[in-house]
Design a protein around this nucleic acid. Structure first.
Lengths: 240, 240
DNA sequence: GCTAACTCTGTACAGCGTACAACATAAGAT
DNA sequence: ATCTTATGTTGTACGCTGTACAGAGTTAGC
């Protein structure tokens, strides 16, 4: 399997190198490896995606995984692109505000469904068909705004960064289940250390913390922030 | 060294447990370990911060590191809090727009100086004195905006998420030095795969890519985005 | 049937975080 | 001055990681 990552990314394209026909039939395809890895990441987090685990779940040996994928890093790129390729692209009816809102919502849904995407930070994903198709589609959501190409790209980045931050806040933090116990053990010493210093932080932090536990809060913060983002875009384009 | 992380975070506080006086003198303090780790991360990235490397640079054995820090995860929390404690807090003169701009700029500077902060995602940092002091100070930058406590916290998060995204884009990507070679090897097959599909993505991507190489571009995108963020805050508060 | 191309596999290595037990050292108790 | 006890330091060892490499098994084309 000396196929390059770019050819693996485009493995479904008609002109992509298929690999010779000699030798034993593969018991598994690159796509199947990527799917299994993504399922594993969905279920147990990205750290559970080890080459050994992957071989096990696929019913092949550890090293056979490398027949279909060049390295774990490459696999992560393939996973990220596959997730974006499988993402339902929001429809294009309505005004730009509606369309951009749908883009934001679709991206939030994607990141909530696959939180491990937040941990994959590899520029090479930009070469994948899923990522490119997504980029193209989302750029078009900005049609109608008076933005040149560079500004259009910056505007999309602006929206997606906002979504990224919201998704990061929303997902269960890595050690979330231990937090109650941690709080029980630490709140007393923390109060002792703090005394009456930082009154603003203490008051606002308490309010924000309580609000966080209210079920409606993340949705409210999302609506609030998204409205701000849309307003900002409108202002940037000098009113659509 | 059975001191808990919270006590290590507050180790400079007068009432923090100092640890008994018996036994050999420590050859090294927790603070020194954190400093060495941060220097290592600045120079070679967070992945270079291994317990073995740390022991080496400190002139103690690998396992002695654990005398001063409970685990590598705890060390990352201490590093993050120390970086925030050492951050120069922007002064508080001027209107809220000026102050918030300074907050954003200070945070960008922090993340550019210590890009590894982007990789540390641990809720326990919120218990550290540096993080709390920073939070308090930054909340006060929003004084004068008509926001209740929950909204004030959300507004700060909004600003900091924007900075976070900008910093992520600005830092040298993990495999940045290999990108030119990668591009040379991949641009031809990519062009073949793409054909004339996704014209918008191709045009905008090319423009944005070229702009990225223009030295003025990141600064321009930053100014643009920051202005949008400030406008959004003003709108959120119903005009300051 | 032979050869070349291909998949699959087991072994092995260097690196990681860290549990644990043994030892060294210094202060407090006697 | 001696003993006790708390602490710092260290080496060894374990299980885990990604993956290089060599060899064995399998199939298509000559």
């Amino acid at each position: 399997m000396p196929r390059e990552l770019i050819d693996l990314l485009w493995r479904d394209h008609p002109t992509a190198p298929r690999g010779g026909t000699r030798g034993p039939r593969s018991r598994v395809t690159t796509g199947a490896v990527v799917e299994a890895a993504s399922a594993l990441a969905d279920a147990e987090g990205l750290a559970a995606v080890t080459v050994r685990r992957l071989g096990e779940t696929l019913g092949i040996s550890t090293m056979s995984v490398y027949t279909h994928v060049n390295s774990r890093d490459d696999l992560l790129v393939l996973m990220a692109d596959a997730a974006r390729a499988a993402m339902p692209l929001p429809d294009r009816t309505g005004g730009w505000r509606t369309r951009v809102r749908r883009v934001a919502e679709a991206n939030l849904a994607l990141l909530v469904e696959h939180p491990w995407l937040l941990e994959i930070d590899d520029d090479r994903t930009a070469f994948g068909p899923g990522t490119i198709a997504k980029y193209d589609h989302e750029l078009r959501a900005l049609d109608g705004l008076a933005l040149d190409d560079v500004a259009r790209d910056a505007a999309l980045t602006f929206v997606l960064d906002f979504v990224h931050g919201a998704a990061r806040a929303r997902r269960a933090a890595p050690h979330a289940e231990e937090m109650p116990e941690l709080w029980a053990r630490w709140s007393a010493p923390l109060a002792r250390y703090l005394g009456d210093a930082y009154p603003v932080a203490q008051r606002v932090g308490a309010a924000a913390g309580e609000a966080m536990n209210a079920p409606s809060s993340p949705a409210h913060a999302w609506e609030f922030g998204l409205a701000r983002v849309l307003d900002a875009l409108e202002a940037a384009a000098g009113g659509a």
